[in-house]
Amino acid sequence: MSGNGNAAATAEENSPKMRVIRVGTRKSQLARIQTDSVVATLKASYPGLQFEIIAMSTTGDKILDTALSKIGEKSLFTKELEHALEKNEVDLVVHSLKDLPTVLPPGFTIGAICKRENPHDAVVFHPKFVGKTLETLPEKSVVGTSSLRRAAQLQRKFPHLEFRSIRGNLNTRLRKLDEQQEFSAIILATAGLQRMGWHNRVGQILHPEECMYAVGQGALGVEVRAKDQDILDLVGVLHDPETLLRCIAERAFLRHLEGGCSVPVAVHTAMKDGQLYLTGGVWSLDGSDSIQETMQATIHVPAQHEDGPEDDPQLVGITARNIPRGPQLAAQNLGISLANLLLSKGAKNILDVARQLNDAH
C-alpha cells in the first residue's frame, strides 16, 4: 500500500501541473516587456503551470559599433537563445518575429505568432524639431536608422535628408537623439515604442507609400524545439490566425527572394473581405531603383483552434497545428507568387547589386 502511495506522490510531482516552463529572452527592456506579455497570456491559459524567465545577451546586443547589415552573420539576435533551447536550458524563446530568419536551424520551429501590433515605422524627432515631419525637416538634416530597408525607401522619398546608421537598443538610440546634436530624427518601429509606453515620442507614423515595413514587423514569434510536442501544444494558444497568415505570406515572399538583413526588402499586408493583399518591394541601397507589386488571394481566416493538420510540417519556419492547413498554404503560395513576379521584373539584379555594395563598404 505504502509503495503505491509513493508512486502516486511521484506521479503528482512529475505531472504537468508541477512543471516549471523556462522562457528565454534577450536582456533589453523591450525584450523583457514583450516576454512578460507572452508569459502573462500563458499564465492565464495555464494557471497550474509556473513560468521562469531567463534573460541573456546576444551577438546583436554586444556589437554596437557596426551596422547590422555589415556584421555579416545571420541570427544576430537569436543564436545564443537557440543555443540555450538546444541544450534544454529553456523550453521556449520569445523573439520579435522580424529577427527570426525565414529558414531556422534544424530542430527549431516557430510554435506561435502572437497578435500583431502596429507594424509601421515611426519617426521620433529631436526636441528642437518636435512638430515637424520628415518632409518639413531642414535641408541636409541627419536621420538615424539601423535599417537598409528604411534608408533606401526614405532616401527616395525625401532626397533633402541624409540617413546615417544608429545602433543600440531603444533606450540607447533615444538617448543619442536627445543628448547629442548629430541626429534631427530617428526611425523606429511603432510597436516597440508603444510597448515601452513611449507613445508621446511618436512624431509621425510612416504610411506604406512612404515606407513599407519589415517582414514580420510588429509581431512576436515564440520559438521552440520542433519535436517538443508538449510545448508546441502549450504555445499553440498564442497563435493569432490573421497575423499568422499575413506573416506566412510575408516570410514566403522574403524567403523566395532570398532577402535578408543586408538587402532592402519591404512588405505591406492587409486582410479585407476574405482577401489577403500582399505588397512587396525591393530597392537599391540608395533607393534610386525599385520594383513594387501587389497581389491578392482569397483566404478564409479560420477561428482559433479549428482542428489543424496533425502532421505539422513547417511552413517558412512556422508550425501551427491548430490552424487549418489550406489557408496557410494559400498564404505561402501568395508570397511565392509575388516573389516570382518581382524576380521576373529584375528584382534579383537589384538585390545582387545591393548585396555587393553593402559587402564592399
Rank of each mutant, 00 (worst) to 15 (best):
R19K: 13
V20P: 10
I21P: 05
V23N: 01
G24H: 01
R26K: 01
K27S: 12
S28A: 07
S28L: 01
R32C: 11
I33R: 10
Q34L: 05
Q34R: 01
V38W: 01
V39M: 07
V39P: 01
V39D: 01
A40E: 10
T41Q: 07
A44G: 11
S45I: 15
S45Y: 13
Y46R: 08
L49M: 11
F51K: 05
E52P: 07
E52C: 13
E52A: 14
I53P: 15
I53F: 13
I53H: 01
I54Q: 03
A55Q: 10
S57L: 09
T58K: 01
D61G: 03
D61H: 05
K62F: 07
I63M: 13
D65F: 10
T66N: 10
A67W: 01
S69I: 11
K70T: 08
E73F: 06
K74V: 04
S75Q: 09
S75M: 06
S75G: 12
K79A: 10
E82R: 08
H83G: 10
H83Y: 14
N88P: 07
N88C: 13
V90W: 04
D91Y: 05
V94Y: 03
V94F: 04
S96H: 04
D99K: 01
D99W: 01
P101Q: 08
V103C: 15
L104N: 03
L104G: 08
L104D: 05
T109E: 03
C114A: 05
C114N: 10
K115I: 08
K115W: 05
R116I: 01
E117D: 12
E117M: 06
A122T: 10
A122Q: 06
V123W: 01
V124W: 05
F125D: 01
F125L: 11
F125M: 11
H126T: 08
K128D: 08
V130L: 07
G131N: 09
G131T: 08
K132P: 12
L137K: 01
L137C: 06
L137I: 14
P138W: 05
E139C: 14
K140V: 10
V142G: 09
T145F: 10
T145C: 05
S146V: 08
L148N: 01
A151R: 11
L154F: 07
R156Q: 12
F158C: 12
P159W: 05
H160A: 05
E162W: 03
E162D: 11
E162V: 14
E162N: 05
F163C: 11
R164C: 10
N169F: 05
L170R: 01
T172M: 05
R173A: 01
K176S: 10
L177G: 01
L177M: 12
L177S: 01
D178N: 09
E179Q: 12
Q180K: 13
Q181Y: 14
Q181D: 08
Q181A: 07
I186E: 15
T190L: 13
A191S: 08
G192V: 07
G197K: 03
N200F: 15
V202P: 15
V202Y: 08
G203E: 05
Q204Y: 08
L206C: 10
H207G: 11
E209D: 09
E210Y: 05
C211T: 05
M212I: 15
V215E: 08
Q217E: 04
G218C: 01
G221N: 01
V222I: 15
V222N: 01
V222W: 01
E223D: 07
R225T: 07
A226E: 15
K227V: 01
D228H: 01
D228I: 01
Q229Y: 14
G236M: 01
L238Q: 07
H239Q: 07
H239L: 05
E242L: 11
L244Y: 14
L245G: 04
L245H: 09
L245P: 01
C247H: 01
I248L: 11
R251Q: 01
A252S: 01
H256D: 03
E258N: 01
G259V: 05
C261F: 05
S262V: 09
V265M: 04
V265R: 01
V267T: 15
H268E: 15
H268Y: 14
T269I: 01
T269G: 01
A270G: 06
A270R: 13
D273E: 11
D273I: 06
L276S: 03
G280F: 01
V282D: 04
V282M: 08
S284N: 10
L285V: 10
S288G: 13
S288F: 10
S290K: 07
T294V: 12
T294C: 01
T294S: 13
T294P: 15
Q296S: 08
T298F: 06
I299E: 11
I299T: 14
V301L: 01
V301A: 12
V301F: 13
A303M: 04
A303Y: 06
Q304V: 01
H305R: 05
E306K: 15
P309Q: 10
D311L: 05
D312L: 06
L315Q: 03
V316R: 12
G317Y: 07
G317D: 05
T319V: 01
R321W: 01
N322Y: 08
N322G: 01
I323M: 05
P324M: 03
G326F: 01
A331N: 01
I336W: 13
I336S: 15
L338P: 09
A339D: 06
N340C: 01
L341A: 01
L342E: 03
S344G: 14
S344C: 09
N349I: 06
I350D: 04
I350K: 01
A354R: 03
R355Q: 13
